[in-house]
Amino acid sequence: MTDTVLETQGLTKYYGSTLALDNMTVKIPRGCICGFVGRNGSGKTTAIKLLLGFLNPTAGSSMLLGCDSQNLTPALRQRIGYVSEGHRLIRWMTIAEIAKFQSAFFPGQWDGKFFREMIEYFELSKKQKIKHLSTGQRAQVSLALALAPNPELLVMDDPTLGLDAAIRRQFLEGMIRLIMQQGRTILFSSHILGDVERVADRLLVIDKGVIRADCPLEQFRRAVKKVKFVFSQPPPANINLEGLLHCKTNEKELELVLVGTADEKIAEWANSAGAKDYQPVNMNLEDQFIEYTAGPGQKKPFSWEGI
C-alpha cells in the first residue's frame, strides 16, 4: 500500500493555445480529505479529468494509487470512486436499475444494504427515473453509487454544485461516513469554502491554472493573514516585509495581506516603518481564499517554510 494515493509531476494541459493547467506538482497522502478549491475556470475540472485519464496531458504525468493515469487498469478503477462534473448518469434508468448496473462491475465489493440506506436517507424512491431527478437528487444518487463499492479513493468534481443547503448537509454526512473508515482518501473540488472547512483536512488551491497551495488546511488558516496598519503620515511606498502578497493604501492606513509571516516580524516591521498602531483583521476561510487568489495570477505557490 502506497502512502501517496495521488501524485502529479509537472502536469500541464493546453487547449490549443490556452493554458488550462500549469505545471501541477502535488502529493496527496493516504487517508486525508483534500478540498480542491479555485474559482470557476481555474482548472479544477481539467485537473480532475487528467487524473482519471479522461484527458491526455500536454506535459507531465500523474499517478493514482501508484498507477499512471493514462493507463488505469480495470483493477484500479475498481478501487476508485468518481463523481463527475454535473454528476450525469444514465438518463433512462431508474435508481434500482442503475444500482443493479453499477453493482455488476463490483462483484464482492458492492454494499447493497449501504446503498439502500443512503437512498432511503436521501428520501428517494428506487423507482424514480434518473431523468426525472433534480440536480441535487442526482448528486445524491451519484454519491451513493460511488460509495457503495467501498472505494479506497474517492474523487468528486464539484459534487455540491447547485445543491441547496439541506441537501448539501446530507451529502457531507455521507462523505463523513466514508471518512470514518480507515485508509480512505477523498479529493473533492468545491467553491463552497464552508463545506471545505467542515470536512477537509487538506487544502489544494488553484488559481488560473496554477497550484497555489498544497498543505494541511490548518496551516493555510494560520498562514494567510491580513493586517491593518495606521500611520500618522502617508505610509511608506516600499514595503520590505517577507511574505507580502498584496497591499492596499488608503490615506494614512495600510492593509497588507501576508502569507507565512511570523507575528514578530510583523511587529518588527511596524516599528521600523513607524506605524502608529496595527491590528490583525479576522478572516474566515473564504476571506483568506479570496485574498490569496486576488490580483494577477502568480506563478509559484508560496513557500510554507517556517510557519
Binding site: I33, R169, L172, E173, I176, I179, M180, V199, A200, D201
Partner: peptide, 11 residues
C-alpha cells in the same frame, strides 16, 4: 461528535 456536527473526525 464528528458525525453529529458533520465535520472531519480529525478536527
Amino acid at each position: 461528535l464528528a458525525a453529529e456536527l458533520v465535520i472531519n473526525p480529525n478536527t
